[in-house]
Design a protein around this nucleic acid. Sequence first.
DNA 1: GTAGGGTTAG
Length: 622
Amino acid sequence: MSTQKVFKTLRQVFSVNPALAPNQGIAQNICATLKNSELKSLKSKNLLSDLNSDVIHLVLSNPDLKVQSCLYFFKFLQRNRRLCSYKPDLQAYVILVCRLLTARKFAEAKIMLNSVVVDNNLRSPVSVVANLVDEYDYGKRISPKLLDMLFRIYADNELFNEALEVFDYMKNNGVELDERSCMVFLRALKRANNVEMLVNFFRQMVDSGVQITVYAMSVVVDVLCKIGDVRKARNLIDEMGGKGVKPNVFTYNSLLDACIRKHDMMDGNEVAMAGIDEILGLMESNGVSHNVATYTLLIEWFYAIGKIEEAERLFKEMCEKGIKVDAYAYTTVINWNCRLGKLKRAFELFDEMTEKGLTPTVQTYGALINGVCKGGQMEAAEILVKEMQDKGIEINLVISNTLVDGYCKKGMIDEALKLQDVMEKKGIAADVFFYSSISNGLCKLKRNDEAKKLLLTMEEKGVAPNAVTFTALVDIYCKEGDISAAKSVLREMERKGEHPSTVTYNALIDGYVRKGRMKEARKIIDELECMKLMPDVYTYTSIIHGECIIGNIDEALKLFGEMSNKGLIPNVVTYTALISGLSKKGRSEEAFKLYDEMIEAGLTPDDSVYSSLVGSLHPTAA
DNA sequence: GTAGGGTTAG
């Protein structure tokens, strides 16, 4: 017998308070009953009426009673709350958890400890728990395991401050911390978007000597990348490099993703490309090979900046290198082919992936459905939805919105509204995307009043308008000629913290142009730049169109010249406005020159271009 | 254990 066991036995024998002696008797009775597996007779023998915390503690800590019996007894008590007024206290839970941990029944221990943590009456400071553990566990073998488990459970329940208390307690009491448990905490913080605490905690991990792995570092790097702080992420990698922690492909992929996302926000493609090249260079020099996620990121990037051949080349290269292309990568490539209108290729890829035994996901179907919807092929979309549902994948909000938008764009508003019923039945709540599509659909059918009503009442239905729906409203008012109403929408947007975009201002510009108020329209370009927004092709086209209408053709040509300075590529509408403006003034030579330029640029003129050009040759007939 | 995929406006 070990010293500890002897000590424990002696303690049990000699420390019995005479006043508590009856408890010993009851406890022994209960243990005997439990040993005979007569749980039910606990009720009939009326043993439960005499229960108190000491009896429970004595039963649970009785070494002669198997841990399984303790567990049964405990659960029996929980199930039969009515029979005994006594509710297990923290000490009872702690004893049971200690016993479960000793018996290596970790899953059961975790469930028990979790019920302590989620119970406001049981949850206690870590020092209280630790003292109770020490009372039971003289050898202090269990304590580190229990504290570690407590730490993880607090993390899982997003009780971050409590988790930190456990961390500090362990650190201060010289209890070794498991790096994997710290990972659980880091991941929980990441899920909760608690960046500040995550970065601070990582710092504490480093300071308190927890073994830092590339896993932990990658989580922090990823979070820093996601908030756009690539600089900090890179510094961290460098710092950890000094401690022997080497970044791996996951770490680099997070950096790549950040560089790619940054280009969406503001930086030009060149800036982003330089960042991407730098990361790729680091990977190369550190001998870190690209994996399927690296390729997926790069493929997505090249498609996004219009380098289609490069994207396709990378996809081929990935296949040839024997990297297993997974459903994620296929979905990306399928999506881009759909967006580019290459539906045939998209379906080929879809077949290819299923032939390889890969299971298309809801996103894969989402990409294809989007592709056919954008192509106006609503029957094909319906077939895909059915196929997807046959495979046990249900439509979700994104796919519903895609279909609704597809119907609306075709003017099939009734079909879209029918889908709304389906959504309701499936418990899919319409969101701001849904309202945006429907209102556009209504506008397309010249049912502006209905669209307006929908946009004005969506908030009552629990959907907050955003910049897009506010813009739709601005657009409707401007088209109606009610600029002051449009401006009051703009003010409401600002009040609600929704920032107008270039599109919003374009709608307003169009409103002014329609009224021939060119001074005010022109002023908005300056306002745009004050707001750190960039005028786009639509901004210029509207104003060029406006100047042409009032006969300021030279002003229009000046603006046209400005476009190329800003890297804006005129579209058919821009050319058409200018050609028709020049034609009306009889400047047919310049008009034909622009026509050639437009053809050169690969644009397809529409009928109005020709009638303008013909008109320019016969000014009197025009 | 850490990374990558589908929807909205003129």
